[in-house]
Amino acid sequence: MLLRRVWPSRPVFENPFSEFDQVRREMMRVFDSMTSAGTRSGVFPPMNVSQDSDNFYVHAELPGIKASDINVTALRNRVSISGRREIPQEGDKVSYHRKERAEGEFSRTVTLPGEVAADKVEARYTDGVLRLTLPKAEETKPRQIAVSVAS
């Protein structure tokens, strides 16, 4: 099922090597999905990054974390998410059958393809998913340039 996204169409950035990097990541994803039955990449939290003409959007899966325990920082073209996930003790009298959910510190930084207006970043946390809206900095937005005819 994961194989259908081997060669998705991607926006081309200024840096031609980012395309190679993109291909490398996709290959890793595909190999990982074949070797370990679809285990996701070993980073936490998993993130999706997208953009439209005005904003970058970052979605991160952070189940069971208090909104106050999540730190988000944005500087120039980088955005960092860090925090701590704690799993409360369930008392002495319980016996565990399974314990798969992990706890601990996490920290991740992603570099975006353009600078953001750090003071206008919005963060919302619903249903265990953190959604960041990062408006693009004015100077990095594409601008329409009028062509005048030289007389």
Binding site: P46, E100, R101
Partner: peptide, 29 residues
């Protein structure tokens, strides 16, 4: 890293998209 998810090869749903096996804690008192 235990915080990763894995796909589940069990019964296939009728709608499109990947199927994930959620991480669980189960305890008994």
């Amino acid at each position: 890293n235990n915080l990763q998810k894995s796909t589940n090869q069990a019964p296939e749903p009728t709608y499109h998209g990947p199927v994930y096996s959620p991480a669980v804690d189960i305890f008994e008192s």
